[in-house]
């Protein structure tokens, strides 16, 4: 009887130790996620020109130039399409929780969501806002590995609620510097839907952001979108830029 009690006690202690160790490990990974989120947050205003090349096996290759204005304090961004000429003037304005799409042909604003895809590309509107992995996802597990020449953590995440488009995410983060190199996003039934690659980063003010992004549609063969950032600036942006009136004005 004593032996059984001893055995059970040992197993229990082992389980508690393992759980504590695991919690400790997850805490470390959670800290990494928090650092990643913090580093993509700008203390200053941010603007850039995004050149997007969308490769679609049916539609062919198309190029889009978008001017991005971003102010993380208050969750604001404005995306103004400059090319192609047929879509010039279309804009996305984020005001806190509300994202508006403006179409100059109808001169109307329509409510849209960060979950939606950006135009016909493979990027989502949320990709142009501040990242929030640490608050939107919980760590399910992690491992260590290499991606190219980089030693990385491979982290499995599960959404904490249903407010994010992808319920499951796997990400590759460098062990040195906490740079996200690759993200795989999965459907509710855990089917790979999109892969995102971030091969190039730049330090902008206090933030470190990817300046080259590749989004691969894992469901449609051959569909992918490449995004490159240029003309990056942290100069102060006037308040009126983040208003509906401004989008209307630039379209006059």
């Amino acid at each position: 009887m004593k032996k059984i009690t001893l055995l059970l006690g040992t197993v229990l202690i082992a389980l508690l130790v393992a759980a504590a160790a695991s919690a400790q490990d997850f805490a470390e990974i959670e800290a990494i996620l928090a650092r990643i989120d913090a580093r993509t947050r700008f203390d200053t205003d941010f603007s850039a020109v995004m050149t997007m090349v969308v490769e679609d096996p049916e539609q062919g290759t198309s190029k889009m130039v978008v001017r991005q204005f971003r102010r993380d304090d208050g969750d604001h961004f404005l995306l103004l399409i400059q090319e192609p000429i047929t879509q010039k003037g279309q804009g996305y304005l984020l005001e806190g929780d509300n994202l508006w799409f403006y179409d100059p042909s109808s001169r109307k604003f329509a409510h849209t969501s960060l979950k939606e895809t950006f135009q016909d590309s493979d990027a989502r509107n949320a990709d142009f806002a501040q990242w929030s992995y640490s608050t939107s996802y919980a760590v399910e597990g992690y491992g260590e590995g290499t991606l190219g020449s980089h030693a990385v953590y491979i982290i499995d995440l599960a959404a904490v609620d249903d407010t994010v488009p992808f319920p499951y995410v796997k990400m590759w983060v460098t062990q040195q510097g906490d740079l996200v190199l690759k993200v795989e996003e999965y459907s509710l039934n855990r089917r790979l839907m999109r892969s995102s690659l971030f091969p190039k980063y730049a330090k902008v003010g206090s933030a470190v952001i990817p300046v080259q992004l590749v989004f691969i549609d894992e469901l449609v063969e051959g569909k992918r979108t490449q995004v490159a950032l240029s003309e990056i600036s942290t100069s102060e942006i006037p308040d009126y830029v983040f208003t509906k009136a401004y989008i209307e004005r630039v379209n006059r």
């Binding site: 979950k115 509710l188 469901l219």
Partner: peptide, 15 residues
């Protein structure tokens, strides 16, 4: 064929 849809709460799913 693959069917890509959104759940009732807007999450991505594939069947």
């Amino acid at each position: 064929i693959l069917v890509k849809l959104e759940t009732l709460t807007g999450q991505q799913n594939v069947g």
